[in-house]
Amino acid sequence: MKTDIRPDLLIAYFAAAAVAAHVLEAAIPGPGPWFKMGLANIFTLVAFFHLGWGAAAIVSIIRVVAGSLALGTFLSPTFFLSFSGATGAVALMGVVALSPFRLGPVGVSILASLAHMVSQVVMAWVLIIGHDGIFLALPWFLIGSWFTGLVNGLLAFLILKRVAQHQTMEIVWR
């Protein structure tokens, strides 16, 4: 379901929204890099369902890089964690795109969220922590990811409904 906006512009808007969400979330105090809602992912999902996997991948990369530049964490450990998480999520989306299952934003979001968390923890284990105790906490983190995945999926669904209904780009900001 395409709108009459050029796809690449749409990607840019989604990416901008994602970066904004990312930066905004970073401003909210929280227990650590793993306790965020991941609102930026909503836009990755929207891009995925509206424009396809490639678009989602682009939005993701832009979000991670531009977001870290904006926050001043480019090439820091935080950046690599973020990057690995996004990579995991995007890879999983690729698998979903190729599979015969008909999944909506909620399903994809939950799966992507879980993949994101696993990739991040593995990267943290490699880069920072080094001993296996971290994997003990993983199931608990994943439960959090499941819920944020669910919420993000629902929000993406709502946005997608609007994006599909209307023909102009103002929708994204409504």
Binding site: F101, R102, L103, G104, P105, V106, G107, I110, L111, L114, L138, P139, W140, L142, I143, W146, L150, G153, L154, F157, L158
Partner: peptide, 23 residues
């Protein structure tokens, strides 16, 4: 209900079960 296909619900259910089992 509106936002999910049957496949989505399967994903939700199975992933939830796996996580609970892990925990």
């Amino acid at each position: 209900k509106k936002a999910t296909y049957p496949a989505d619900r399967w994903v939700m259910a199975i992933s939830a079960i796996i996580l609970i089992a892990l925990v």
